[in-house]
Structures are given as structure tokens and as C-alpha cells.
Write a protein that binds this DNA or RNA. Structure first.
Length: 637
RNA sequence: GGACCCGUGGUGUAGCGGCCAAACAUGCCAGCCUGUCACGCUGGAGAUCGCCGGUUCGAAUCCGGUCGGGUCCGCCA
């Protein structure tokens, strides 16, 4: 139950015609006072001539007693009261009879003895229990009647937590001299990786606005404008498939600072995160301050992930050395190493007695993520190692692997041999999954960390160009600036052998408990360098000017060095509320297919709306055909 | 684009080829009850098993499709 805040007390003083106090405000000290409460009937306990009503609002719950002899009219109304009816009750605050206090309620020492009771609104029987917060309910029902789900304690408290989070964020930024600035929602489409949501223009038929995937360019322009320190709680839109941690519209803490080095931004953001965390969830320990900082290669090497969960160990171990001189006898390992691949493993503590089917599960998991197989070595209680590949490797090598991995009796060593990226990805995912399965992570701990020094680009095989690993505006680590060139010398002709592939970005991500919380970078603020970077990313000069002309031009008018970051508010709030699904911290989320089950969005517009926008619908059949034809043209021009 | 899971009175589940026009809990309705707080007691109403089609003598139960919800891969930072 949430304690009333200072604001709640201020509200009490407002004394609306419907209530003198909230349902969470009254205490033993108020005994004898007249009071009026308004709220929803949480529960009714009818003892005939005596009726108890629990009256609920978002501040709490107060027991109302209606006695037929004291207040016959009120009693008659109370007899007909039903759960979720909205009542206004006037009466006297009284201490409960000795022995009938309810220690589970903040207001449990008192009750309101009703003298007058008015029904402000009747309620249908709700489609699910509002007064039993633990009762499981199908999520589509909860979404359809979201306003009822929001009356329930868990979701209500999560929204309150989220509000506290956003408030703490605002406080911290204002104190640090940041200016909160809103940026437009109707902007221009910019290829930032994700698909844009499009809004057709009525005033200029045939043209469209795009909804921002983030205010990236706008905030950089604010730096050019000299705003120096900007932040915004910004709504962002991405038209991609949904997940538990991805909604088509979501909220970011977006910030940008001028005249900064990488460390300036990271230090501020880290301090802000620590302060906000301690203010919003003071009872939850932060694993390590300052946050551990890993370079991208180190994170992949040790955790197989660029968003490692640091609440448990289980680091990846290189086993090549322990295998000894090649050939080891196991051909998969030998060939992998000969081809420049890696043989690495992780130790699952206590899983040495895993059943065949459990092993099969893990193997299937590994295969699903691209591994050709999964080698397991079980360490028995007596320390002996057992593995299906034992007959190839021999006892000695098996024992060496176990020793190198640090596996103890009762543990299970899992080994993947493959290309470096696959080994990291598969073991990283296995590590995360096993960490959860084996409950290795303390759920209460907040383990923030930084991962930085990402590669600037990744080679895009399909389109023959470099793709920005994160953000197309990210700056290059100063000493790597000479690498931003192609092998051919012509930046407009990228190839996989370009030195640019080795360039590192001034890019940093924050992770929390295995989730990516956000990322940012120090940007390129020089026009020539930005043009070169865009060229490597496959943008012809004209296309570049068409897409980013405004920004490039702005950089000719004195752009300060600047950098920033964006953090996912939904994810942050979810993790602070012990949730693994951001729908649980959003007031009105959408389903996996992007529907709003409450409003019925998206919906078919009327013909008139189409006409006004100069649009005509193809019909579902033709639209799908057009879509198929449109496929495979991933050209940037 | 793909894989998997779920869909039975208001809600949550059971039933998984005939014994089921379907069971249990809770909710709902009615009656009784002056100290409850998931109040209690008594009685009652309420689902043709998401939808369509098929297999079968017979389908909630098997098969195919479809719709809705979820998890995941791809996609997405």
C-alpha cells in the first residue's frame, strides 16, 4: 500500500464537495472528527443490521461501518451497494473496537461510522476481480478493460513508481542545468535503422510526415543552437515487430550536452542513474558504483553479450589452450580452431546431474541460436569428468578442460566451438538463460554497467555497405579517425576489407541486469567527417543531402562538439518494478500485433478521410501483392 | 516472414473420442446474520466448450483452416 504523499495531504486540504480526506489518510489521531470519503466499493461484508464497506481510492482503503440502528437510511443504501460502485460517505472517524484493528491496513486502527451514504455511480459486475490483485487474468481482458486493471493495486503502484522515476529524472536534470525542450512528433523520415510510422499530409497531398524514432537530429540541432544541455522525456515510434520489451511507441529519456568528452557524458549519466535509483527504490542495492566499464570486445569475450547481467559470474572461458596441441582427437574442435574459430565454454553450477532431456533442451537452445552443437562435460561428485566426446578427447584432455573452466564436482561444463561471433552469441544467451533458470541472480540487486568502444560499422553483406553499429551520427575514437577510409580510397565505394571496419566509435551503452537500458555517443560535429561516414554507410551525395541536408547545412554554421544518450524509460521502470514486460509499466499498451484492445485501434478510416489525403486503398489483396513486389529493394539510392 | 503455447459459465481452471447440453473454485442473484476484514450459512441462475469445415455411428476432446492473446527467431537499439 502506498503511503500518502505530501501532495496527497495537500489534496486533503482542498476539501472537495465529495470528500474531506482520501481513503488512505485517516489515522487514530483523527478519531472523533467528522469526515467524508469518496471512492469505490472494494468489498462489502453484510452482517444484516451491520454492514462493512471497504472504500478504495488510489491512496488506500478505509473501512466504513453502516449500522442499521444508527443510520437506517445509509444502511438501506449500503445494502444495495455493490463492488465498484462509487460512493460518497459522510460520518465520524472512530477507533475500532479493541481487538478488531486490522494491522494490514494503514488505516486499520480506525473506521468511518457512516451517517450518510450516497451512490455517485453504479458499476456493472467487473469482468475480472479488482479486489483480488493476485488472481490471474487473461491479458487480453486486462488490456480491453485497462481502466479497470489500473484500479488494481499492482498496476496502479507501478504507474506511481514510473511517475516517481520520471519526476526524479526531471529533478536531477534541472539541478544539473539541463533545459527541457519538446521536439515535434511530425517530422521527416530519416533512415535510422527501424521502419518509420508515416502520417500522410492533407495540405500537401502525396507527401508524408514520419513519426520520430527518436529526436536524434533535433537534439543535435539544439546543440548547434547553443542550448548546451538539453533533455526531454520523449515519445518515440518504431514500426517493427513487438516483444515483451518493445512497443511501437515508447518513451526515452533523451539528452544531449555540448563541449563534452565521452567521459563527461558517461560520468553525468552514471551519477544521474545512481541518484535516481536511490531516490526511487532506496531499498534496492546497486551492485557496483562506479559502474563497471567494459569495452565491447571485452564484454563479448567475457559475457558473450553487449548487455551483460553482472548479478552472477559464469563467465565465458577460452578452452583452446587446455585442449593442448592439435589434433585433440575431436574433429569439431580441431577444425574450428584451424579455421580461426573459438572453443569456449561456461560452467553451469550444480547442473552436473542434468537429465538427458535437459541436455537436449540446452542443445536445442544452442542450435536455435546458430551453434552446430553443444558439447557437455559433467563433473561427478568424485571430480571425474564425463562427456560423450570423452572417447575422442581422452580422460586427460577432459580433465584439463574441466580444470581450465573451473568446474567443480556437480557442475556441468557447456562448450561451443564455432566462429567467434556465434560462440559469443550462443554462450552469452545460454549464460543469461541459465542464470535465470538456476536463480543465480539476486532479483533485488541493480547491476548497472557500461559497454563502450563499439565498432563504428558492421559490414552489410546484402547491400555491400557499412552499417552504423548504433547510430549513424556517432563519432569515431580520435586515434581511429585515419581509419575512416576505404581500401579503394573512394569513400563511395565501400568494401569489406576497408580499414573503416576496424574503426571504433565513441559509443556507450548502459545495461541493467542483462537488459539494454540505453545508448549514446559523442557525435560527429564536422561536416566533412559526417559526409565521409555517411558515404561509407552507402549514401550517395544527393541522397545524403535529401535526407540530412538540413543537418549538414547546420554543421556549416558552427556546431559545437557534443554528445548524449537515450535511456528507455519503459525498460528502466519495468526493471525497477521487478517486471520483465514493459506493458506492465505502461498505462495503455498495445498487443503483439499492435492493437489497442480498449480503443479498437488501428481501425479502417472512412472513405472521406482517404479522399481528403489524396489516397486510395488498394484493397487487401492488391496491397499484399504490392508489398511483395516492394520487397528486396533495400537500396539507399 | 517463421516456430511454439493458450482460447470451456462473469473470472480462473478441470475434463482431452461415448459415462459431459460439461465438473470445481470464485463471482453473480435471493434469503438469513450486530464486529467483519478473502465474513459466514442456505438456496438459485449461469457455458453447446473462440469461429468455420472435416474425420467418426458419436467431437469440448482428433485433423485442417481461421480469428484473438502470449513467448521466441527474423526484424528492431
Amino acid at each position: 500500500m502506498t503511503e500518502p504523499t505530501i501532495l496527497a495531504h495537500a489534496l486533503d486540504d482542498l476539501a472537495t464537495p465529495y470528500r474531506s480526506h482520501t481513503c488512505g489518510a485517516l489515522r487514530a489521531d483523527d478519531a472523533g472528527a467528522a469526515a467524508r470519503l469518496a471512492g469505490w466499493v472494494h468489498r462489502r461484508r453484510d452482517h444484516g443490521h451491520l454492514i462493512f464497506l471497504d472504500l478504495r481510492d488510489r491512496y488506500g482503503l478505509t473501512q466504513v461501518v453502516v449500522d442499521a440502528r444508527e443510520a437506517p437510511e445509509a444502511h438501506a443504501v449500503a445494502t444495495g451497494a455493490r463492488p465498484e460502485d462509487v460512493l460518497s460517505v459522510a460520518g465520524t472517524v472512530a477507533r475500532r473496537l479493541a481487538g478488531t484493528e486490522n494491522a494490514r491496513l494503514a488505516t486499520g486502527e480506525i473506521e468511518l461510522r457512516a451517517s450518510e451514504l450516497t451512490v455517485l455511480a453504479r458499476a456493472e459486475t467487473p469482468p475480472f476481480y479488482i479486489n483480488a490483485p493476485d488472481a490471474p487474468v487473461d491479458e487480453s481482458l486486462r488490456l480491453r478493460y485497462r481502466y479497470l486493471d489500473l484500479r488494481r493495486e499492482p498496476l496502479r503502484d507501478r504507474l506511481l513508481l514510473r511517475a516517481a522515476l520520471v519526476r526524479a529524472i526531471r529533478d536531477a536534470h534541472h539541478r544539473a542545468g539541463f533545459v527541457e525542450i519538446e521536439t515535434p512528433i511530425l517530422i521527416k523520415s530519416t533512415p535510422e535503422g527501424a521502419r518509420d510510422f508515416i502520417v500522410p499530409s492533407r495540405l500537401q497531398p502525396g507527401t508524408v510526415y514520419a513519426l520520430p524514432q527518436s529526436p536524434q537530429q533535433l537534439k543535435q540541432l539544439l546543440m548547434v543552437a547553443g542550448m548546451d544541455r538539453y533533455f526531454q522525456i520523449a515519445r518515440c515510434f518504431r514500426d517493427e515487430d513487438l516483444r515483451g520489451d518493445r512497443q511501437p511507441e515508447f518513451t526515452q529519456l533523451d539528452l544531449e550536452m555540448s563541449f563534452v568528452a565521452e567521459a563527461t557524458v558517461m560520468d553525468f549519466v552514471e551519477a544521474m542513474i545512481v541518484e535516481v535509483s536511490r531516490s526511487v527504490v532506496p531499498e534496492r542495492p546497486i551492485l557496483e558504483v562506479p559502474f563497471p566499464r567494459f569495452t565491447y570486445p571485452e564484454a563479448l569475450e567475457r559475457f558473450g553479450s553487449d548487455k551483460p547481467d553482472l548479478r552472477f559470474g559464469m563467465e565465458l572461458v577460452d578452452l583452446a589452450a587446455a585442449l593442448g596441441p592439435v589434433p585433440s582427437g575431436f574433429r569439431v574442435f580441431d577444425e574450428t580452431l584451424a579455421a580461426g574459430g573459438r572453443v569456449k565454454g561456461i560452467v553451469a553450477p550444480g547442473l552436473g546431474d542434468a537429465s538427458r532431456s535437459r541436455i537436449d533442451e540446452l542443445t536445442a537452445f544452442a542450435r536455435r541460436h546458430g551453434a552446430r552443437g553443444l558439447v557437455h562435460v559433467a563433473v561427478a561428485a568424485d571430480g571425474s569428468a564425463h562427456s560423450p566426446v570423452g572417447k575422442f578427447l581422452g580422460e586427460e584432455r577432459l580433465a584439463a578442460l574441466v580444470a581450465a573452466a573451473g568446474a567443480a564436482p556437480g557442475d556441468l561444463l557447456l562448450v561451443v566451438a564455432d566462429r567467434s561471433e556465434i560462440v559469443a552469441d550462443v554462450l552469452g544467451r545460454l549464460r543469461q538463460q541459465l542464470g535465470l533458470d538456476l536463480e543465480l541472480a539476486d532479483p533485488n540487486v541493480l547491476a548497472y554497467c557500461w559497454v563502450h568502444r563499439f565498432p563504428m560499422y558492421q559490414w552489410d553483406r546484402d547491400n555491400g555497405r557499412w552499417d552504423a553499429t548504433h547510430n549513424p551520427f556517432s563519432g569515431v575514437v580520435p586515434e581511429d579517425e585515419p581509419l575512416l577510409v576505404t581500401a579503394s580510397g573512394d569513400p563511395y565505394r565501400p568494401s569489406i576489407d576497408d580499414p573503416a571496419g576496424r574503426a571504433r566509435a565513441m559509443q556507450y551503452d548502459v545495461a541493467l541486469n542483462g537488459w539494454e537500458l540505453g545508448g549514446g555517443s559523442v557525435r560527429i560535429h564536422r561536416r566533412d567527417l559526417l559526409e565521409r561516414s555517411f558515404a561509407l554507410q552507402g549514401y550517395a551525395l544527393e541522397k545524403m543531402h535529401e535526407l540530412f541536408g538540413g543537418m549538414l547545412e547546420a554543421f556549416d554554421f558552427g556546431a559545437p562538439p557534443h554528445g548524449g544518450i537515450a535511456l528507455g524509460i519503459d525498460r528502466w521502470a519495468a526493471l525497477l518494478a521487478f517486471q520483465t514486460n514493459i506493458r506492465e509499466v505502461m498505462a495503455f499498451p498495445k498487443t503483439q500485433s499492435g492493437s489497442d484492445l480498449m480503443l479498437g485501434a488501428p481501425s479502417v478510416p472512412d472513405a472521406g478521410q482517404y479522399a481528403e489525403l489524396g489516397l486510395r486503398h488498394l484493397g487487401v489483396e492488391q496491397a499484399l501483392r504490392a508489398l511483395r513486389e516492394e520487397r528486396a529493394t533495400g537500396d539507399r539510392g
